[in-house]
Amino acid sequence: MLRELAYIFTYRADLKISLITKLYIPIALMLFLLLAINSKNILLTATQLITILILELSILMYIGSLKRIVSAIIFITIFISIGLVIRTLSIALSYEPTALEDMILSTLRVIEFFLAITIALQWIKVSEYRWIFKKLGLSNIATLLTLVLTQFSPILIAYSEALTTIRLKYGGKALQKVVKPLIIYSLNYGRDIAEAIYMYGISEPDIEVAIEKVDVMLIVVITIALIQLCIIPNYVIQ
């Protein structure tokens, strides 16, 4: 599971898409999910959410591989399962549970919001985050974020190895014991990174923000789709 998580922050670097497009699409999706979902009519809400889900999965497929889609679907399943468990518990404890369809739709909405964040994480390169933060005058945060995101995967893999070892050593009874070796590992690894930075420095990225044809097409298609999803439900209700 930890190894799967490591892939959340991986991206395809050969995508020739402008940073503006990469920022616009996830932000537009998040704003739509926050402000434009029509919750008065369940059927229309479902239509809006399913369309957004299809859009997000298509983008994830375009960005990368099947692995990312599988991770996204696992993510959705975990959220829905948690919702169902809570609902079953509330029935068992004689509370009045939320309607099943409401629960599923709101869970879907939360998932889609997280998928939009995932798109941003997988689509925008680490160097582009660094560039954005530096433009905002946050140079130190830009450096920290760059290193954390770049070194996230190998550290997670070491953490997964430590968990395996401690579970077998203590029979799964004292998982909290994993903290100490992990701190020591992280300190040593961090020190090695500091040495490498001393020798190689932190190079500035070369970011292209120019908009190409593909960017115009993507922005137009997403914008039209979102506007239609906003307008159509109102006509249908009237």
């Binding site: 991206y11 670097a13 160097s127 040495e195 990225p205 070369d206």
Partner: peptide, 21 residues
């Protein structure tokens, strides 16, 4: 551990930005 040499995850991006530096 050569993994510690990387500032950016993509190999080209990392090498190119260092070369530009």
């Amino acid at each position: 551990d050569p993994r510690t040499h990387f500032i950016y995850p993509n190999v080209y991006e990392d090498l190119y930005s260092y070369s530009l530096h």
